[in-house]
Design a protein around this nucleic acid. Structure first.
Lengths: 307, 307
DNA sequence: TGATGATCATTAGATAGGCTGATGTTCATG
DNA sequence: CATGAACATCAGCCTATCTAATGATCATCA
């Protein structure tokens, strides 16, 4: 289309320098070229735009912008300043300071892990735009990741093969009961046979839990299911039944409930952070992964004190 | 400073083409290059910005922007669109459509010539910004022109040597008197000896007039001076005296006054349009000069019918 | 008026960079 | 495992641009 596609920023820099210095020679000194080079650069610019941009009065008098050159210069300075601001933003992006980071997550991570992470990221990079997409379903989270709608995603289940991922945490299943319902300490899975159970809806996490129970010899009967962990806890407090939940779902300070390890230990839910393999991550995403790793190490330490 | 000063618009065009086409090869076809050239252009761009802008998954899969490349592309498209709008504005400027035109003028031209000129310019170029600077003093007008505060200036007196100029019109001096004060037809300058005169303030135009009178043997006595031509005419109507004014200053339709040629004819005021020699004029200014010439030719024809 | 000095233009030669065309490498597909 | 599509790389050519030297123009000043 436009012949201006051959324009180079160098030309505009030269134009600007000559316009402010008044002579080709001083502009050349300022830019580290010879006078001849500036003369040729301006000539090239004039060839591109099709008009003289400077009047050369001849002799020792300084050159002066033509009206046309003045228009070129005004637009040129605008272009240069855009290029500078691009440079600035690239620098900030390089260290994670700007851009958008979208994270896939599910409920227990959203409430137990993510808030601290978002807080750190926001204090480090106030201008970074952080978004989240929550789903109880691993399959949906995988889909969001594959489609590029999230940059990284927490995954509760098995790491899908087309993703790169980092294992962050083993989240053990814990028995939740009315205080006194069981003696303090670990509870054997066989003691739960026939016990009415409260559970979550049958999505990936819950199904893992149920499968493990059956494999350990206990075929659970669910008398109530809710996606809301507060509701599950309330039902347990009411005596409707007991519940097995991932540790991260628990409000461990609640004195109206008691928590028990299970024996044998059910295979814990593995919490990993996944991203598309072979795709370059944004610096913000890279940093997020490291912070998530740190945060989960701290969490693991806290958890081991409770179980 | 910024390494981005070596950026060329070509790089951004290539980035944009690859991002929309999905492969280097199709982008090359679109832009008329070979695949190799695009590959090298993208490599050059990546060297400039310091990061990969595309992930190349390898094999027959299409390339995809990295998060970094996405930032570069968004800024790059902004730059390209700025360059396009620069191109558009240069085109409009080339045919006089945009920009600013400042004209130096003095009273008689302002009232008799300029309105029609401004009207033509505005209908041809609605977006052109037209300004005027009026002064009764040729010397001041010369100064404005030399300082570049006006692009072109009407000058009533002698053309200053450092300006280029075009002679537009001879504006003859005309005697203004009460009807019946002199017989119809030309009046001899000697008949004005001792006649009380009304005149303008003693600036360049008025002084030219007085000097010519004296040279023709009539030493005028001014009983009233006003810069306002309506006031001068009113004083003449009142019988206070007679006046000699340039033709362009007259309201020739006024039946309460009569107009007379003078004999011998006083050297007319030469109305010229001047601009700085050796400086390129804006297309709008060039066009203005031609229009002024045309308009003044028409005026001269009208005038010769009256004198 | 003529020498001087500052300015930009032009030229020639060297160098760097970019494009083409051919080839190498990678990887999904059947 | 062969095929084909895609990007990378390389060599060779060509163009663009830089430097250095020289030429042309013009104000200034003696």
């Amino acid at each position: 289309m436009s012949a201006l596609r051959e324009l180079e920023l160098r030309h505009l820099v030269a134009l600007d320098a000559v316009a402010s210095e008044g002579t080709f020679g001083r502009a050349a000194d300022r830019l580290g070229y010879t006078q001849s080079a500036i003369s040729q650069q301006i000539a090239a610019l004039e060839r591109l735009v099709g008009e003289r941009v400077f009047d050369r009065p001849g002799g020792p008098r300084p050159v002066e912008l033509t009206p046309f050159g003045d228009v070129v210069l005004r637009h040129g300075r605008e272009l240069l300043s855009r290029a500078d601001s691009m440079h600035d933003e690239l620098d900030r992006f390089r260290n994670g300071g700007v851009g958008r980071l979208t994270v896939g997550t599910f409920q227990s991570v959203s409430s137990a892990v993510l808030p601290a992470l978002v807080r750190s990221m926001r204090t480090r990079h106030p201008d970074l735009e952080i978004r989240g997409r929550e789903s109880p379903d691993d399959h949906e989270l995988n889909g969001l990741l594959a489609a590029g709608e999230v940059d990284v995603s927490f995954i509760g289940g098995a790491p899908a093969p087309e993703f790169e991922c980092r294992h962050l945490l083993d989240d053990p299943f814990v028995l939740l009961a009315q205080p006194g319902r069981f003696p303090d300490g670990p509870v054997n899975v066989s003691d739960l046979v026939g016990e009415p159970m409260i559970g979550q809806q049958p999505h990936s996490c819950q199904l893992l839990n149920e499968g493990s129970l059956r494999a350990a010899g206990c075929d659970p009967t669910y008398v109530f299911r809710s996606e809301d962990n507060g509701t599950v806890a309330a039902m347990v407090r009411s005596g409707m039944g007991v519940a097995i939940l991932p540790f991260l779902c628990l409000e461990i300070e609640d004195p109206r409930l008691s928590f028990h390890r299970l024996e044998p230990v059910l295979p814990p839910r593995q919490i990993t952070l996944a991203w598309r393999a072979g795709r370059t991550l944004s610096p913000a995403a890279e940093e997020f992964i490291e912070l998530a790793d740190d945060e989960c190490s701290r969490l693991a330490a806290t958890m081991s004190a409770f179980t």
